[in-house]
Amino acid sequence: MSDRIFGVFGFLLAAFYLWQATQIELSFISDPFGPKAFPYMIGTVLAISSVVIILKPDTEPEWPGFARLFEIGVATAVMIAYALFLKEYGFVLCTAIAASYLSWRLGSHPVSAIIAGVVIAVGIYVIFHLVLGLSLARGPWGF
């Protein structure tokens, strides 16, 4: 069933992609093939393979229970928040929080998770910024 849904999704994606390809504006200079032809080929193969997947699905994968899906969802949200707040609050603080969260959710005791997060953040800061000179996000305090 998952495969069938996936196939339908792939087919819709192909339709959308092909429709978008027809919308590509041509410029006055062009080669005989043009910028549309290759996308048409891609969209067609995408549609065909999606149909094959719908018709011949594999065995059902083992989806995790709701709790684990929720876990992945929250982790994704944390990462998105990390990306958004990175420039505002600087690398070390954001990284320490995000790494602590991930470590906690992977089964660490909360205290050791916080320690791990801080060690990871400071460690990366020291190695990559201070030693190797990579530019990291600067927060209001300069780190």
């Binding site: 990462m79 990390y82 990306a83 958004l84 990175l86 420039k87 690398f91 990284t95 995000a98 790494a99 602590s100 991930l102 470590s103 992977l106 089964g107 660490s108 998770a113 791990a116 997060g117 990871i120 953040a121 460690g123 990366i124 990559f128 990579l134 530019s135 990291l136 996000a137």
Partner: peptide
């Protein structure tokens, strides 16, 4: 449980280092 967070954070550092762009992250 200590390794994977570090992997995730180093991935972010690497991509941020290329472009400094939130969009890329």
């Amino acid at each position: 449980r200590y390794l994977m967070p570090a992997v995730a954070m180093i991935s972010f550092v690497g991509i941020y280092g290329i472009s400094g762009s939130t969009f890329d992250l």
